[in-house]
Nucleic acid binder design. Structure first.
Ligand code: MN
Ligand code: MN
Ligand code: ZN
Ligand code: ZN
Lengths: 140, 140
DNA sequence: ATTCACTTGCAACAATGTTGCAAATATTTT
DNA sequence: AAAATATTTGCAACATTGTTGCAAGTGAAT
């Protein structure tokens, strides 16, 4: 059922609809939680060239369809942006959670990154907050 | 003059004193701000094998001599830990700043990561806060 | 000085990321 | 619906980054 949704999103973001883009976008829609480049390559099967995956993620990023999440292990994760993002600039001020047990990276959409006061001379442009620990599902 | 200091730190952390370790540790002592693996490889010159740099950073990490800082660009940075760290566990609760102009990553030792309340079910083990923008030196 | 443990460099390899280009496909126009 | 145009894809070739086993080199202890 995410097929329709995927096409809709692509159109809304002025991206032409192709097999690869639809497939990758569906992965994001189905899987809740963030995906790394590697995850996507695996989940998409042998269907798409690695280069295509790179370029697709790049395109999605530029259009603001997804956002990237830094990690401590040299493997950026990506997650879908909420609707409010797509229209213009990013509203991406939520905390990210990385589970040390299952390895999942989760957007805590409801947890806002707190404001932070820096020493004189520093100008803040963006703030990322990464929490690691044990996630809800693993924690029982 | 950081030569003595380097040896002292190595001894304190029960690491045998070798050319490579001393040199890399000196780099950290001299340069204030974080270094990536690549930075170190360049700054150390052609003197050391890449593998040695990896293994040295690994050793420093394990001993708690340095800590790693996640970034959004697939290149972890490392920075010296304060003295309080070395003795036992990490006290690494400061904010990290990444300058979009000069590219430097800076430990804001005086800015503490604020506590954060997560939804029911999540257990926090570690919190990272990454601020990007324009740093003090670039900002004039 | 000798011994023993640890560290290093090398080689070989694996994994990840980048680029140019021609063929394939999607979109727009007629 | 077909042709024209713009965009996307896969391939190949390459660059960069990270990993491992092992023999030789070096540091620390006796
Ligand atoms: Mn998110
Ligand atoms: Mn730091
Ligand atoms: Zn989990
Ligand atoms: Zn700067």
């Amino acid at each position: 059922m995410s097929e329709k949704k995927a096409e809709e999103l692509l159109k809304k973001n002025q991206l032409s609809i192709t097999g690869g883009r639809r497939k990758i976008l569906e992965l994001f829609l189905q899987h809740d939680g963030a995906l790394s480049h590697g995850d996507i390559e695996k989940k998409a099967g042998e269907k798409f060239d690695r280069v295509t995956v790179y370029r697709t993620l790049q395109a999605f990023l530029e259009k603001g369809l997804i956002h990237s999440i830094p990690t401590s292990d040299n493997s950026i994760r990506y997650a879908l942006c909420k609707d409010e993002c797509s229209g213009g600039q990013h509203r991406d001020d939520h905390v990210h959670f990385i589970c040390n047990t299952c390895g999942n990276t989760i957007c805590l959409e409801d947890v806002t990154v707190p404001a932070i006061k820096l020493p004189r001379g520093y100008v803040t442009e963006q703030v990322e907050m990464l929490v690691s620990g044990v996630c809800k599902s693993c924690n029982r």
